[in-house]
């Protein structure tokens, strides 16, 4: 006797938000086009040598931030990195060519370097992570896509487990509090008391996830179809 859920529970009722087919594909194409466009913008920055060209590119990047309804402030952490990079490069140019000869080209190069990075940042900051993962899934083999999506999905669980191990080890005397780690003598505690148990846990976790996936026939067939919803 084969039990069918349809038989068991009668006709299914339609659910709220029942997905339409094809949403995912359209979404992936849109994200792919956005990525491509921003990559082109990034490559333009490599080839631009004049301050007018760099100004144009800066304007386009700012306009894109406006289009995606983000303020420039959302790049504040990256701005710090760019400033630090500018200080190093400009300093090197000044040391090599002196103040007058060195400052302008150094600043230009830093500006140019920053503009090669900004489009990538705009992409990742303005695109929801599930959308990005979905887009990757559309172009990479399904097993690789599954592994990547699963590992990212399990980050919160891994963080909770790391936290539990960390806090437990602190009270067992491990010198792994933030201040302790400023002294490299305590780094072995970080590796053996925290990293080692976390590695063992991740191996077990990989085994458990594999079992859970195989219990639902993952890898049984060479291809797989795709849930039409989001």
């Amino acid at each position: 006797m084969r039990i069918r859920l349809r038989q068991l529970f009668g006709l299914s009722r339609l659910y709220r938000g029942q997905p339409g087919t094809g949403n995912r594909r359209i979404g992936s194409i849109a994200v792919g086009a956005k990525l491509l466009g921003l990559m082109v913008l990034s490559f333009f920055a490599f080839g631009t040598r004049t301050s007018a060209g760099l100004l144009w590119l800066t304007g386009i990047n700012l306009a894109l931030l406006f289009v995606f309804r983000y303020g420039f402030i959302f790049l504040r952490r990256e701005i710090k990195v760019f400033l630090w990079q500018t200080v190093i490069i400009v300093s090197l140019y000044i040391l090599r060519f002196g103040w007058i000869e060195g400052f302008k080209p150094g600043a230009m190069i830093s500006w140019q370097l920053s503009l090669t990075y900004v489009p990538g940042l705009i992409f990742v900051k303005t695109t929801p992570q599930p959308r990005i993962v979905e887009t990757f899934s559309a172009v990479v083999p399904y097993r690789a896509a599954f592994v990547m999506a699963t590992c990212l999905k399990f980050i919160p669980l891994i963080l909770t487990e790391i936290r539990n191990i960390y806090e437990g080890q602190v009270f067992r005397g491990a010198k792994i509090l933030r201040k302790d780690l400023l002294n490299p003598i305590n780094w072995p505690d970080l590796v053996f008391c925290l990293a080692l148990p976390v590695i063992i846990r991740s191996m077990n976790l990989a085994g458990e996830i594999t079992l859970a996936a195989k219990a639902r026939n993952f890898g049984l067939k060479k291809k797989r179809t795709c849930w039409p919803g989001i």
Binding site: A213, R216, N217, F218, G219, L220, K223, R224, W227, G229
Partner: peptide
Amino acid sequence: AFGLENLC
């Protein structure tokens, strides 16, 4: 749907 996807 994960299991159904795997069963094509």
